[in-house]
């Protein structure tokens, strides 16, 4: 994907900037973006190491099995390929919980861990498996009970009711996630037919 998108972004924006005399802002954007990426990675480094450690602690106790049992019916439907992969089920459950609670900082590390486990069973190592696609789509649908970041921004701007958006957010994420699941399932079916 990025092999196609990345050069398109670069070629179009660099040549447009040269032709329209926007070189100043292009140059400063290049340096700002690299330092943004560095500072994001540094902050990710901390949270990813922390949550990887915590999940390893959870892994070695029985709590995570209890959680996985509760979420099992959903996981069976969404990730049929992972039926026998207990480790992947555990990590997917932890990621689901972190997402729902709005812990973006925890959801990403837990999600990356689950990706690693799913990759072990992936027959084609350079291609996303069906379960991985479903997992990424759900993680990009941002399912959460309390949208903490937006509420914080709204209250900092002096909103009279910062939490008024909670209900609309529920409706919107629910519709988005449902459509994401349906589209993914349909495309999985379609790609199977194409192969046969």
């Amino acid at each position: 994907m990025l092999n196609k998108i990345w050069p398109i972004f670069i070629i179009i924006s660099f040549s447009y900037a040269i032709l329209c005399g926007k070189l100043d802002s292009l140059n400063s954007a290049i340096f700002e973006s690299t330092s943004d990426a560095v500072s994001l990675s540094i902050s990710l480094l901390g949270t990813i190491c922390l949550w990887n450690g915590i999940i390893q602690v959870a892994n070695k106790s029985s709590i995570i099995n209890k959680l996985t049992k509760i979420l099992n019916p959903i996981i069976q439907i969404l990730y049929p390929e992972m039926k026998k992969n207990k480790q992947a089920q555990k990590e997917i459950s932890m990621n689901m919980v972190a997402n729902i609670l709005g812990l973006g900082n925890a959801a990403t590390p837990l999600g990356l861990k689950a990706m690693k486990t799913m990759q072990k069973e992936n027959p084609k190592k350079d291609t996303l498996s069906n379960s991985m696609i479903m997992f990424i789509v759900l993680n990009s649908a941002s399912i959460q009970i309390i949208p903490t970041t937006v509420i914080a921004i709204r209250s900092s701007l002096g909103s009279s009711n910062p939490t008024s958006i909670v209900f609309p957010v529920w409706v919107a994420t629910f519709c988005a996630a449902t459509c994401g699941i349906v589209v993914t399932k349909l495309l999985i079916k379609f790609s199977k037919k194409e192969k046969n």
Partner: peptide, 16 residues
């Protein structure tokens, strides 16, 4: 992250 951020930064700054 580095590659993606530069490409997106350029897309915005160039006016595309």
């Amino acid at each position: 992250l580095i590659g993606l951020f530069v490409a997106i930064g350029a897309l915005r700054a160039s006016g595309v």
